[in-house]
Write a protein that binds this DNA or RNA. Sequence first.
RNA 1: CGGGGUAUGGUGUAAUGGCAGCACGCAUGCUUUGGGAGCAUGUAGUCCCAGUUCAAAUCUGGGUACCCCGACCA
Length: 415
Amino acid sequence: MRQSQLFTRTQKDAPKDEVSINAQMLSRGGFTDKLMAGVYTYLPLGFRALKKIENIIREEMEGAGGQEILMPSLQPKENWAVTGRWDTMDDLYKVADKSGKEFALGPTHEEIVVPLAKKFISSYKDLPLYLFQIQNKFRMELRAKSGLLRGKEFFMKDFYSFHKDEADLDAYYEKMKTVYRNIFEKAGIGDITYITFASGGSFSKYSHEFQTVTAAGEDTIYLCESCRVAVNKEIINEQNYCPVCGNKNLVEKRSIEVGNIFNLKTRFSDAFGLSYKDAEGRVCPVLMGCYGIGLGRLLGAIIEVHHDEKGMIWPEQVAPYLTHLINIANSRSVADNLYDELKAAGVEVLYDDREGKSPGEKFADSDLLGMPYRVVVSEKTIAASKYEIKKRAEQDVKLADKNELLNILRQNTNA
RNA sequence: CGGGGUAUGGUGUAAUGGCAGCACGCAUGCUUUGGGAGCAUGUAGUCCCAGUUCAAAUCUGGGUACCCCGACCA
């Protein structure tokens, strides 16, 4: 992408109504635009990062046997009346049409996916079944805050598993813990994201959250540093020691909940009468698990964790572009050629081809936007027949000829 | 939903009752090019509705929006 053609430009100052690091940097970098409190537009750079996250998640969900579907956001009241959540879920957006018929804007999709599954599940041979979607959710947050971390409309992956018995559900639930670990590892926050025991509701002792430790978090967890698991503050009164090793010396940390997995058992299949016939012809309830990740929140969490005073520092797998190519030479011809060659080699590159900008301004923009690699073409590099390459996260600058450059960038290209 | 705060060009800000100013951005021209360039000429603003006053960005009332703390948060 030629930066001279890019829809957005950077801003020197953050808008005064954004306080959180992620919102300030996303706004300054032109990654997102706030429409209203808790509701953001993803602009080209932000949308690319979101898509990178989406692709990581999709790959892992498909690897876990998930089949992707897309369910509606506009949902009939009747489905929510069946589970009782029309009246009890107080962050449910309710809308009505001209005739007075009422609808919910989906905050989650158990009320839709269970009746849907009922149309196709009738035998033990149909189980297990794994369905997921990546889609906008709506929740009436009375106090949206912290940029992308808590919104009224947000992009979420929700995954639902259907099982014939508890053993199968439990085994799959354990498997999903590993799948989730992989996702957060790829997203660049694996080392500071901890599986956390949280309230399990009425059907199981615990649910499990994936909590990323950062001062910007709004959750409080108690971490067992040796087991690398945590306990959410919400259950610390019942569970004040490590559930794995019994350690009582837990360390209090602030954290962001980037994922949650939940054992639903028969909570929703009972409500909708979702059952199957076993090999003996007996009617049995289907057991369910659900597994969520907020993509926007994850994106915000990545920035909260990976930034410095100059800007964002994107992990390679979620960066909008791998490389930021900057021309500060008098002519664009050398940089133009390199841009074409990088693209031809499959390297994702944002090319600062803008005229009339000072080098300082281009470097400052590059630091703000935070692509993993910066490649500079200048009079000095042209004279040396080299290119300058620098990692955003590191100070060292090195000169490389074209082959070296392509090798470095290619080995980080997952194309 | 309780409490607190804020609202001035696209962004950040100044002006406490008396000419709405500055910086960045943007536009045009010339110069400039390794860490947020220079000069010149332009562009663009007082959240909304009432009220007080000779006069309101400024005072009063109402509304709206946004931010922060708390509550809430399958």
